[in-house]
């Protein structure tokens, strides 16, 4: 039934949006078993739209890398200022074991800081939701704490906590708890008040209301917050390492910068991006596990 679309249709679908594609592919021979035909065609269109979502960004990336390689190869930008993509890949491979060792250090700091930051954010959010006084007291402080640039406090943390693990973890905690707190507080507030009334008519305790209604209702926003915090965690750890330490991608970065090894500089930047993306993917996966009903909702929504 669902025959693979031919090359020319593929070409057409890359130009138009899915909505534009539908009319152009109306087949003149349609007529028999129209219903089934249409549904299989819609499925094919969906599949093509999905493939386009993968192909187009990949092509864009390929074009950028191609241009970059050409710029270096034709000497438009001198090579000592800008390494070519090929050189970057070489650097990645050549330093693989060193990078792996530093990655472990950075990931340890980021993970530890993220877990503590999430716990702190959670406790603060619950207290702010439960006691209005706490909310009034902490709201400005929490907000102000976010206006201080991390680069500015990182040296102080090094001064106070030394060159070890502690200042890195503290910096990660400071930069990750905020998105968690903000998302949870607004998640708790998003609960339908009628739902709380309903729980009260069933003699639910405050604890039961929190556990059964408020927390599940806030999960969606919590995970959006956690996603942001996950990227902050890696960046926070790297910044803290920049300013002093013995291992970690930030330390590696300062060393290669001092030796003008820009190919390695780019290599580590790419690695940091990949690690951040992986952490975000982990959060998405956790969310799918924690909220199995979301999949049913999405299916019905279509």
């Amino acid at each position: 039934m669902a025959t693979e679309p031919t090359g020319e249709k593929d070409g057409a679908s890359q130009v138009g949006t899915p909505a534009e594609v539908r009319p152009t592919e109306a087949q003149p021979t349609a007529g028999h078993a129209g219903q089934e035909d249409r549904s299989s065609r819609r499925k094919a269109a969906l599949r093509r739209a999905k493939r386009r979502r993968v192909v187009v960004p990949l092509l864009t990336a390929a074009v950028i890398i191609g241009v970059w390689q050409a710029v270096v190869a034709f000497g438009i930008v001198p090579n000592f200022l800008l390494p070519s993509p090929v050189q970057v890949v070489y650097a990645l491979v050549a330093d693989a074991s060193l990078l792996a060792m530093h990655s472990v250090a950075t990931l340890t700091e980021a993970a530890l800081g993220l877990v503590i930051g999430t716990a702190v954010g959670f406790v603060v959010a619950v207290l702010m939701d439960r006691f209005e006084t706490v909310s009034l007291a902490l709201d400005p402080i929490v907000t102000v704490s976010q206006t201080i640039p991390t680069v500015a406090i990182a040296p102080l943390l090094v001064l106070w906590f030394g060159y070890g693990l502690a200042p890195k973890v503290v910096l990660v905690v400071i930069s990750t708890f905020f998105p968690i707190t903000v998302s949870l507080v607004s998640g708790f507030r998003s609960v339908d008040p009628d739902l709380i009334d309903l729980m009260r008519t069933m003699n639910a305790t405050r604890w039961q209301i929190f556990w059964k209604v408020k927390l599940p209702a806030a999960l969606d926003q919590f995970f959006s917050g956690l996603r942001i915090s996950a990227t902050y965690a890696i960046v926070g750890a790297v910044i803290a390492e920049w300013l002093g330490g013995f291992s970690g991608l930030g330390v590696y970065m300062t060393r290669v910068r001092k030796s003008f090894a820009y190919d390695r500089m780019f290599a580590v930047i790419i690695l940091i991006s990949v690690l951040s993306l992986a952490l975000m993917g982990l959060v998405d996966w956790l969310q799918r596990i924690a909220m199995p009903w979301k999949r049913a909702e999405r299916k019905e929504g279509r």
Partner: peptide
């Protein structure tokens, strides 16, 4: 004193996560 009569509010208010 809530809890003595059953009350069904305007919406069905089913918990989406259960």
């Amino acid at each position: 004193q809530p809890g003595h009569v059953s009350y069904m509010l305007q919406k069905d208010l089913l918990l989406p996560n259960k």
